[in-house]
Computed example of a mutant assay.
Amino acid sequence: MEIASGRTNLDTSRSEESIHLITLLEEKVKNGHLVDLVDRNSNDMHAHEQDVIQMMKLAMWCLQIDCKRRPKMSDVVKVLEGTMDAESNIDHNFVATNQVNFGIAGNATPSAPPLASDLSGPR
């Protein structure tokens, strides 16, 4: 996402609602404005805008909170090679905002902090 958008994941020089790239991604995809994230300062990104959007869709597939819904690395390679399309049925919530979302393995409780494996799973 950093390459496609031409910005870092965390950019404190931006307005509060666009400091975090992944939160901004959530907003743009839900509003149907994914193209707004394409780096306008890169002629190459602009010239290949549809390819960049396809890479963003692949990134979103990989960013899903539920690690079971993320692609295998072999599937990522197939998408990059053009022999497979990225999954289109994606959960567009990429940032866990409450503890319920962290309980991927189902063993997180309010009295104990979640394990690192529960927080993100393999990426």
Rank of each mutant, 00 (worst) to 15 (best):
M1P: 09
E2H: 08
E2S: 12
E2N: 09
E2Y: 05
I3N: 14
I3V: 15
I3G: 11
I3K: 15
A4Y: 04
S5C: 15
G6P: 06
R7I: 02
R7K: 13
D11Q: 06
S13Y: 02
R14M: 01
R14F: 00
S15M: 12
S15H: 08
E16K: 02
I19N: 01
H20A: 08
L21P: 01
I22H: 00
T23F: 02
T23K: 04
T23D: 07
E27W: 12
V29P: 04
K30E: 04
K30V: 05
G32A: 12
D36Q: 10
D36I: 00
L37Y: 01
V38S: 10
R40P: 15
R40Y: 09
N41S: 12
S42C: 13
N43G: 15
N43L: 14
N43T: 13
M45R: 15
A47D: 15
A47M: 15
E49Q: 15
E49G: 09
D51E: 14
D51R: 08
V52L: 04
V52A: 14
I53V: 15
Q54A: 12
Q54C: 03
M56Q: 05
M56V: 06
M56W: 04
M56D: 02
K57R: 11
K57C: 03
L58K: 01
L58Q: 00
A59K: 02
M60F: 11
W61A: 00
C62S: 05
L63D: 03
L63Y: 02
I65Q: 03
C67W: 05
K68Y: 04
R69W: 06
R69Q: 11
R70V: 05
P71L: 04
P71H: 03
K72Y: 02
K72T: 00
S74K: 10
S74D: 15
D75R: 00
V76K: 02
K78D: 09
V79R: 08
L80I: 14
L80A: 09
L80V: 13
L80Q: 08
E81M: 13
G82Y: 11
M84F: 05
A86N: 11
S88A: 07
N89K: 06
N89A: 09
I90G: 02
I90P: 01
D91Y: 04
H92V: 13
N93R: 08
N93E: 07
N93I: 07
N93W: 04
V95C: 14
V95E: 12
V95Y: 09
A96H: 06
T97F: 07
N98H: 15
Q99T: 07
V100E: 15
N101Y: 10
N101K: 10
N101P: 01
N101T: 03
I104T: 06
A105L: 15
A105E: 14
G106Q: 05
G106V: 05
G106Y: 05
N107E: 03
A108C: 13
P110Q: 09
P110K: 03
S111M: 08
P114I: 13
L115F: 06
L115V: 10
A116R: 11
S117V: 03
D118V: 01
L119R: 12
S120V: 10
S120D: 06
S120M: 09
S120G: 10
G121Y: 04
G121K: 06
P122E: 08
R123F: 10
